[in-house]
Design a protein around this nucleic acid. Structure first.
Lengths: 213, 213
DNA sequence: CCATTATTAGGAGTAAACCCCTAAAACGCA
DNA sequence: TGCGTTTTAGGGGTTTACTCCTAATAATGG
């Protein structure tokens, strides 16, 4: 019997997931959490085999919760449930110590398969994701760490301020440097990310978790 | 027997919802859609009693889909499922012609109750929502309609394209009007929202669910 | 029928964004 | 010590964005 804890901030989604899980007779849900804090506490207490963890949760994100459980030496395998298919997310989730990544746009059988896989010690990535990871590896140019990690500290800082709505002049004054310097950083980070519009930068910054929407 | 169509862009959520609905023997799900366009087509074809519609969907949002169905004279009652509890959303959803508004953080029984209610011609709002609506009615002048609902159809459209990264020129060509027209819409919507930068518009559009991050 | 609003369009101008270059000082690293 | 990277800074240019005006047409609503 595989014991499972479900963490998702939407009760109705949680209920649906539990039904989907318990359609398998060898799965049993022994607890549910509505945010990251609750999830960590519950998992430490119940020690389930599997944690089905949503990424977007208040207080503590699913990624941070995963990270904390890892540091605490928790043996439960974590299967992250996400609505994002972007490479950046997958990287971060796996780095945080999760054993699997399933997009919400999956069939219930995918979740079953994922649990079977990580229960036996393997990793599991949604079919939709595997392709992206393969693409990322195949592409050497921007291949490495996608996005934020290819930026320097300063560029990240500038990007954040741009996304927060400051003009280049305001950023220059904020950081105590010349307008032209910000212009350089701006150009450089735009080249690195291959995003050449403010709108794109904002969305990137949000996806990357640099700022909140 | 109450016939239902479920529209949500996440397959796994859709599956969960269907299970929750079919736990009631007098409910039967006769179709499912993964985006707004599909939903409209499917509902026009199948003519269900109820449409359980998510707001955040690609191509055509649940709100726009609701609006289209209303204009087409569709008799199906629409129950909107949303993760947002903000007043602005509820306003717009009801204005679009939906019969009910249920937040995702509800129990399945709430959805059952909502369907019973709107099936008998009533409206249904999640408990979490009712208070907000009452508040909004109580002080009409104060906050006013905050956000999206104060924009016109065209302004919303332009905002969406701005947030998606199109330049004014591209938007003009996309919508088949003059650059100056887009400039007008842009100015007007910026005045209405009191947001005067692209970065702010993008974040607003994301918060408002007009686009995805 | 009149008032308001939505949609369209333009003129004219300032500010900002964005693109092309170069280049110096500082830093770690091999 | 030299090499790459980061951070700094600038010159000069084109293109958008943004603001301030006006104004015609159509539709909506009291």
């Amino acid at each position: 019997m595989v014991t499972i804890v479900v963490a998702d901030d939407h009760k109705i989604v949680r209920e649906g997931l539990i039904r989907l899980l318990e359609a398998r007779e060898d799965f049993t849900v022994i607890g549910e959490a509505a945010n990251g804090d609750e999830a960590v506490a519950l998992v430490m207490e119940k020690r389930p085999d599997i944690v089905l963890m949503d990424i977007n949760m208040p207080k503590l994100s699913g990624i941070d919760a995963t990270r904390q459980l890892g540091k605490a030496g928790c043996q439960s395998k974590i299967l992250v449930l996400s609505m994002h298919e972007s490479r950046a997310y997958v990287e971060e989730v796996l780095r945080a110590g999760a054993s699997g990544y399933v997009v919400k746009n999956s069939a219930s059988t995918d979740v079953h398969n994922a649990i079977d896989a990580i229960q036996s010690g393997a990793s599991y990535l949604s079919p939709a994701i595997t392709q992206q990871v393969v693409d990322a590896i195949a592409r050497p140019g921007d291949g490495g760490p996608s996005g934020v990690s290819m930026l320097t500290e300063r560029e990240r800082e500038v990007l954040e301020l741009i996304a927060e709505g400051l003009s280049s002049r305001e950023i220059a004054s904020e950081l105590g440097v010349s307008l032209k310097t910000i212009d350089s950083h701006r150009s450089n980070l735009m080249d690195k990310l291959d995003i050449h519009k403010v709108s794109g930068l904002v969305r990137f910054a949000i996806r990357a978790g640099l700022i909140e929407a």
